[in-house]
Design a protein around this nucleic acid. Structure first.
Lengths: 212, 212
DNA sequence: TCCTTAATGTGAATTGCGTAACAATAACCA
DNA sequence: TGGTTATTGTTACGCAATTCACATTAAGGA
């Protein structure tokens, strides 16, 4: 299982849930391929590698697929997340309703600014960052979303790691890198989302469509 | 030029600006590699493909690199963006200050809700979506950011395309796909950012570190 | 029952990308 | 001036992932 394939199977999972919602029970490789935006050959190959078998001429059973892929993706486990940096973007994510259907729960926010963490109008509790270790220890948190300004991103990431969180979704423009894993330590999983970079790439690709 | 390489050269560009800001004039492949988080070999290879030459033993001139890469990335051209969907995330992006140093300007917002577009507290004008074509025509907009709910994302994307915008950064959980290019029509460039998907992947990778 | 058709499943070919290795070259130093 | 060293530029290699092609299998129809 590599990371490209992981992206694909989470896509399959979503597409399958939508297909089931509209009443379908079976799906063919090429349907799912369309829905997930990949080729039919790779759908078959992915399923083959996951030991998921279909019926010749009958396609795949959606329920079975959802069960199998759901198990692979760890649905059912607690997926608790904190948000560090409760500025505009952090707040917006706290209110975002799209996490719930995936079993992801935002359980707390953190900020350095007393004006922010004293305010009471959040959907989840917001604490001063000095209480990070304490709260994280109490809440079974595995992943943190970083929405702090560029200047404090690296420090915040360090602190989060020190608190025992090894999953980071980073929205700051600094590209965070995983620490090299040492003597049995858990290795970091870091995804960086750089919005300005995405826009730049779009502009470039518009300018030179040859990139395909 | 493939998309991985494009990511890298935008990284080079940023790193180079930082290096110049602290007074450097030359840079070696391995320095830039460290700063951009890649290998030295690939830096040389990228530059070789872009016909950027360094001086044996002297490295590359930062000013020349910035000029060349800036030209490739289209710096200097207008990079005007609109935001469609002025809910919490859309608003947060309007206020985001990280676009300016890259020459990206958010020039307008759009929403269907009169309560939203009548409000006056935005850093840029917000219009009813019915005026999309008109405003887009007047402002030289090439890229739209979609921050609308899932249910309206596909319609909004269609409308944006119809208005002649072919670059889309989509934050809705629907994966938007480019229209197949027809008879000389400009092909769409669409980047989808699915935050729930990113979190799911992080959880998975934490669970099975074997993915590397 | 047998033939056609539609789909899966998989080995082989291909492509693309990063790494490694090294030849070429210019600066520096004695 | 000549040798040494540091760095570039490029070629060859290897891996990994996708696509291709087709054998395999089951359904459906005459």
């Amino acid at each position: 299982m590599n990371s490209e394939m992981l992206v694909r199977i989470t896509r399959y999972f979503r597409a399958l849930n939508r297909l089931r919602a509209i009443g379908l029970e079976k799906v063919f490789a090429h349907n799912l391929a369309d829905a997930a935006g990949v080729s039919a050959a790779i759908v078959r190959k992915d399923f083959s590698q996951l030991d998921i078998r279909g019926q010749k001429r009958g396609g795949y059973e959606i329920n079975e697929l959802i069960d199998r892929i759901g198990a692979i993706l760890g649905k059912g486990d607690a997926q608790n997340v904190i948000i560090v940096g409760c500025g505009r973007i952090g707040k917006a994510l706290m209110h975002y309703s799209g996490f719930e259907p995936d079993g992801i729960r935002i359980v707390a926010g953190f900020d350095t600014d007393p004006l922010i963490y004293s305010e009471a109008s959040y959907p989840v509790p917001v604490y001063p960052i000095s209480r990070l270790e304490e709260i994280v220890g109490a809440l079974d948190v595995q992943v943190a979303i970083i929405t702090v300004p560029e200047a404090s991103a690296a420090d915040v990431a360090e602190r989060i790691r020190a608190a025992g969180i090894h999953g980071i979704l980073n929205f700051s423009p600094i590209t965070l890198k995983p620490h090299p894993a040492e003597n049995g330590e858990k290795t970091d999983v870091i995804h960086n989302i750089n919005i300005a970079l995405e826009l730049e790439q779009i502009f470039y690709e518009l300018k030179f469509p040859a990139i395909r």
